[in-house]
Structures are given as structure tokens and as C-alpha cells.
């Protein structure tokens, strides 16, 4: 790649290139790309895990069944705890979000693979879906009263318009921060590993140092992959609570 040119030329962004899977040519909206491949692998892995894990239906679960049940109860408890009983019907939606993000994050850590969640387009779609869901559900459930979220009734009257403006801005920044957080974290982790790998390519025997650093960062990235999926899901729960739950100011 970059070090073919000789010297320390690191191109940490090269790994995020999207190119058609078969041959060359222009990228149309339906062209299967390397990202499509890894999205497909994510889907297959989730499907296999979920179908094999849920197939035995034993009262005393085996290993795979334990994984799926752990996943299920983990998200279920999170939804129940954060959004309350009202939000429980969004549980399948959050389950899809979490399983997709965590699987694609972890698959992206396989060397040579591709992480769809490192792309802003992917995370932006996920975050916009959440944003639209929250807004539509909020207006559907509470009608115009949903706007009361921006009118902080516990604040002094003089401050309320200013607070309303701030709340409104922060409401619309939500999908941005929601998507950038996930995409940025994954992208940053991969890019840092690539930078260290570039160092390792030119340092000769001393490259043991960057390789050790890669190992350490890899461990951190495993943690980040799970934590970011968790954070994305729990923030979705927090946003949904605004829409379905009672006011909590």
C-alpha cells in the first residue's frame, strides 16, 4: 500500500475506500462493493448466531443459546430500565440496532476486513432513523405537547426562551453527534492502528514497539467496539424516553 512508495508514507484512510466488488467501473446505487460484502457478512453472522442460538429452546441453555439470551435480556433490561414500560415496544428496533452495530464493529476488527460502521453514511442513516423515530413518535404520542420538552418549566421565566433555543439546537445536533460518535470512534481506532502499522513497516527490528502498541490498541478497540454499540443503543433509549416517557426535567 502506502509504504510501497518507500519511506514513511502512511495513508490511514486507504482502508476506508469503497470500491466495486467485481471489476472496475462506476459506482451506481446498487453496485455490490466491499462494504456490501461486509454488510452481508454481518447479516450472515447475526442470522447464524441468532438462528442457531435460538433453535434448541432448552430450559437449561447451551453456549450459543446463552449468548443469544444474554444479548436479548441485556437489551431488554436496558430498554425497560431507561424508557420504562412505554418504550418496551421499541425493543425489537433497539435489538436490531445493537446487534448490527456490535457485530459490524467486531467484524471490522478482523485484519483486512472492512467496518461499515466507520462510514458516516452508515452511522448517519442509523442516527437519522433514530431521530425521525423519536420526533415522529413524540408528536404522535404527545401531540403539540412534545414541544414542551424545549420549554424548561423549572427555569426562571426570563431564561426560558434562551434555554428553549439551546434545547432546540441540542435536539437537532443529536443525530450529528449520535452518528459522528460511532463513526468517528471506529474510524479513529482503525486509522490509529494503520498509522502504527505504517511505523512498523519502516522501523526494522525496532518495529516490535509499534507492533506491541498495535496489540494494546487492538484490545482497546475491542472494548470500544462494544462500548460504542452500547452507547449508541442506550442513547437511543434516552432519546426515546423523551418521546414516550413522562417529562423528566
Amino acid at each position: 500500500m502506502a509504504d510501497e512508495a518507500g519511506g514513511l508514507v502512511i495513508d490511514p484512510m486507504h482502508q476506508f475506500q469503497i470500491h466495486p466488488l467485481f471489476g472496475e467501473g462506476p459506482l451506481t446505487w446498487y453496485t455490490p462493493t466491499n462494504q456490501t460484502l461486509w454488510l452481508g457478512i454481518t447479516v450472515v453472522v447475526i442470522s447464524i448466531l441468532m438462528l442457531i442460538g435460538s433453535a434448541p429452546r432448552k430450559v437449561i441453555p447451551g453456549r450459543t443459546q446463552s449468548i443469544t439470551e444474554l444479548l436479548y435480556t441485556f437489551i431488554h433490561d436496558m430498554v425497560e430500565e431507561v424508557t420504562g414500560h412505554e418504550g418496551a415496544k421499541f425493543f425489537p428496533y433497539l435489538m436490531v440496532l445493537f446487534t448490527f452495530i456490535v457485530t459490524s464493529n467486531l467484524l471490522g476488527l478482523i485484519p483486512g476486513s472492512f467496518a461499515p460502521t466507520s462510514h458516516i453514511a452508515v452511522t448517519a442513516v442509523l442516527a437519522l432513523m433514530v431521530f425521525l423515530t423519536v420526533t415522529l413518535v413524540g408528536f404522535y404520542k404527545k401531540g403539540i405537547g412534545f414541544l414542551g420538552m424545549f420549554w424548561v418549566s423549572s427555569a426562571p421565566l426570563v431564561l426560558r426562551p434562551i434555554l428553549a433555543l439551546i434545547e432546540l439546537i441540542s435536539y437537532f445536533v443529536r443525530p450529528l453527534s449520535h452518528s459522528i460518535r460511532l463513526g468517528g470512534n471506529i474510524m479513529a481506532g482503525h486509522a490509529v492502528m494503520k498509522v502504527f502499522a505504517g511505523f512498523a513497516g519502516v522501523m526494522g527490528l525496532a518495529s516490535i514497539v509499534p507492533i506491541a502498541a498495535i496489540a494494546a490498541i487492538y484490545g482497546l478497540e475491542l472494548l470500544v467496539a462494544v462500548v460504542q454499540a452500547y452507547v449508541f443503543t442506550i442513547l437511543t433509549c434516552v432519546y426515546l424516553r423523551d418521546a414516550v416517557g413522562e417529562a423528566h426535567h
Binding site: L51, Y72, A121
Partner: peptide, 22 residues
Amino acid sequence: NQVFWLLVALVIIYIVLTKIAM
């Protein structure tokens, strides 16, 4: 392209999860 395939993937996962696994 990304959005299209992402939506396809999400729909498949949604169907697998809600219709069979969950």
C-alpha cells in the same frame, strides 16, 4: 450505494430477529 445496502442489511436483520429469533 451505502445507504441502499445498509437498509437492505437492516431489513434482513430486522426480519430475522423479529420473525424468527426473538
